[in-house]
C-alpha cells in the first residue's frame, strides 16, 4: 500500500524509514519524484530522527556540541498539497 507516510519515505529515502517499513525498488514516482525505493508499508510507529527545522538553529547547535550534521531538505507539499512530502 502506498500511503502518505510512505511517500514521505520515497522523498527522504532511508532517513525516515520507520521500524515497520520495508522498501523495494520502484519506478519513476508521481509528482515528478525521482526513481528510487518505494515504500510499500509504513506506520508512524516509534521514535524517528529528531529533526531541527531550521538551518540557523541546527548550525549553532552543531558548532556548540561539535557534532557532525545530518542534512536532508524536503518540500512539505506534493502537487501543491500540504500534509505530504
Amino acid at each position: 500500500m502506498k500511503n502518505v507516510s510512505g511517500w514521505a519515505v520515497v522523498a527522504i529515502a532511508a532517513v525516515l524509514a520507520s521500524p515497520a517499513s520495508a522498501q523495494a525498488p520502484g519506478p519513476q514516482g508521481r509528482g515528478g519524484r525521482p526513481p528510487g525505493p518505494v515504500e510499500v508499508h509504513a506506520e508512524p510507529a516509534g521514535p524517528g530522527i529528531a529533526w531541527f527545522g531550521t538551518w540557523d538553529a541546527a548550525l549553532a547547535e552543531a558548532k556548540r556540541t561539535q557534532r557532525p550534521i545530518l542534512f536532508m531538505s524536503a518540500a512539505p507539499q506534493c502537487q501543491r498539497v500540504p500534509g505530504v512530502w
Partner: peptide, 29 residues
C-alpha cells in the same frame, strides 16, 4: 529503533523545508 534512527542520534539532524525561506535556500543550494 531502526538503525538509521539510532545512528542519527550522534548527529545534529536538520531538515529545512525546501522553497520556504530565501536565506535558507542558499544553504540548500
Amino acid at each position: 529503533m531502526n538503525e538509521v534512527v539510532e545512528a542519527s542520534r550522534a548527529f545534529v539532524c536538520v531538515r529545512p523545508q525546501t522553497y520556504e525561506d530565501a536565506e535558507e535556500a542558499k544553504v540548500l543550494a
